[in-house]
Design a protein around this nucleic acid. Structure first.
Lengths: 337, 337
DNA sequence: TACTTATATGTTTACGTAAACATACTGGCT
DNA sequence: AGCCAGTATGTTTACGTAAACATATAAGTA
């Protein structure tokens, strides 16, 4: 008799139920033929001794796990909260679990993180954006996991991307601002410009201004993470310069909201004195005294669809390779421009 | 010779480097004595064939994993984004990874989720709040994992809790509102009242009103998740009743912000016509036209400390058992009461 | 009747790793 | 010279599970 003080295993359940370990395995996983009588005997034996399966052993033996690695740049922006929420909902529904980490917009950290997450032998991985190092690409290819890239569709995905065109969003914003008669622009971004999606929006924005003959006076990039306070500070600084713009494009709503705060506190009229535009379409904007012009994005949906894709029973990946699912965006014309 | 098309293992690295598998293991984990020469040979062999360790096998053999299970009620509230962010930061620093799931404020789902997460043999688990079923308690005890409970300290933790007194927060808010001369109150909550922390705040609030002889006219609980829109709707409804309160206590800032929106849209003055108070102290409140009276909580810090605790090298758990770390809160007196 | 087929269970083995237990070679110290 | 401690490696084994391959009984079919 074994008086181990380790956690009960299938062998313990088997002994208790008077069957073989394999029979217990079959009952637990609902595979193969099991008589009702044995099934219930095993079930109650398991319950009685408090058996909990060991996923490590299961994953090792079966060479697959119900894990999906999730790589996000940050949790400091509620955008990724929505994305993660979508992913989690979809995965949970299918019995999968997310394991995740944040890169803080650093490629080196992404490499490291992806490598680490792959060591759990997940069946899928969610990456943010389409730009990834060769190291990461190689590691993913070698691991043979399903991949979903989210947020961006301007480029060639490894497998399938769920997102929207960041360039088009920048373009749309510029077009809207130009249509309101603004000609002298400034840009305000954060994270030292390491946010590549923001960079693409700026690219689309810049190009559209150039085509229209308008000027982008300055591109202001803070090394800090984005926040309302930082947006406020940056706005104050931009507006204090001799070469004053008549419109500011922010890389996101947090910064832009800081801009609104600065203007309200200083009696600067929007859009007469200065026009502002943000990006994301966060819910709290509705409660602001001034409606911010912004671009609403299907964040939850991106996560949801990516999660669904990764938790789908094996479909033919080849046919999806390089494809893109454009979930679109929605320019919301507010009162700031 | 083995021409497998599976992923490379330590055996493959060992063969390539001309050493034993155990030596590879030692190099990878930096344990035991290894000569510089062999170390570099193994390293380059591993890099060359793209070896990635198998954490499942490692965890199975060593009977421990660098995983921490995280159980949150929802991701639909940015509060838990901050908490998760703190947890993730602390864990990542220590080389741990979070695996998580959401309960949607359901005890049954918590039981199921905890059981599932424990099957990964995590070394620790983060739970939200102090109320857990016997099933969950038993499973955790049997698993022998370290436990950190967050958000709440009103009760007896399984091991160690990082949070603040929800009851005291409700009390403080009531005290503040009473001091402003309000006497007739209404409460607005969400999630069908399944949010137990909100329940405790209400309890503290209710008790304080009673002690002061003030009346709580109605407790309005929406079955929906909290959101600004729902708060707005509820506020409209509460204010349309014959028995009109002169103050509303909301279970959180989202609902309260909806209240502000309703008042602003309908020319209802705050606090003259109606006083409002929320809970959480979310950053976006700073950008609202009216400063909401609320209670700011150390969300990130709760997560951070919980994560740190769980990723600490084995400390004596017994001495911590049942202890509580009160991270406090901060009542912010705004313009709404 | 013999022979398939469906049902129900058992036995053996391998998944990749690290713990436990060898083994062997160095150099310094008695 | 003999011995011990430190350094550097190897061999065997077990972690808990499920795949692969038996085996056995009952029921249906040629």
């Amino acid at each position: 008799m074994k008086t181990r003080n380790t956690r009960p295993t299938m062998d313990d359940v088997a002994e208790k139920a008077g069957v073989s370990q394999m029979t217990v395995s079959r009952v637990m996983n609902g595979k193969g033929y099991i008589s009702e009588e044995v099934r219930s005997r095993v079930r109650s034996a398991a319950a009685e001794i408090g058996y909990v399966q060991n996923r490590l052993a299961r994953g090792l033996r079966s060479e697959k796990t119900p894990l999906v690695a999730v790589v996000l740049p940050t949790l400091g922006n509620s955008v990724f909260n929505d994305v993660l929420s979508g992913i989690t909902d979809a995965l949970t529904q299918a019995g999968y679990r997310p394991v995740f980490g944040v890169t803080e917009y650093s490629e080196a950290k992404e490499d490291e993180l992806v490598r680490d997450l792959l060591s759990w032998r997940p069946s899928g991985i969610v990456l943010t954006g389409l730009e990834h190092s060769d190291v990461t690409r190689a590691a993913i290819a070698a691991a043979g996991v399903r991949v979903a890239e989210i947020m961006d569709i301007d480029g060639t995905p490894i497998s399938l991307a769920f997102g929207m065109s960041q360039i088009a969003a920048g373009h749309a914003t510029a077009k809207h601002m130009l249509a309101q008669g603004h000609r002298r622009f400034a840009y305000a971004g954060s994270h030292s410009g390491r946010d590549l999606r923001a960079g693409k929006r700026l690219e689309g924005f810049r190009r559209t201004l150039r085509d229209a003959g308008a000027t982008l006076l300055s591109e202001n990039i803070s090394p800090k993470p984005s926040s309302m306070m930082e947006g406020r500070r940056m706005t104050a600084e931009i507006l204090s310069r001799p070469d004053r713009p008549d419109a500011i494009y922010y890389s996101n709503d947090d910064l832009a909201t800081g801009g609104i705060m600065h203007c309200l506190s200083n009696g600067i009229r929007m859009p007469e004195d200065i026009a502002l535009a943000g990006f994301n379409g966060l819910p709290f904007l509705e409660a602001l005294p001034v409606g911010l012009t912004t671009v609403e994005t299907p964040r939850y949906e991106m996560g949801k669809q990516a999660g669904k894709f990764l938790s789908m029973p094996e479909t033919d990946l080849a046919e999806d390779a390089g494809r893109v699912v454009d979930l679109g965006f929605n320019l919301i014309a507010g009162q700031t421009c």
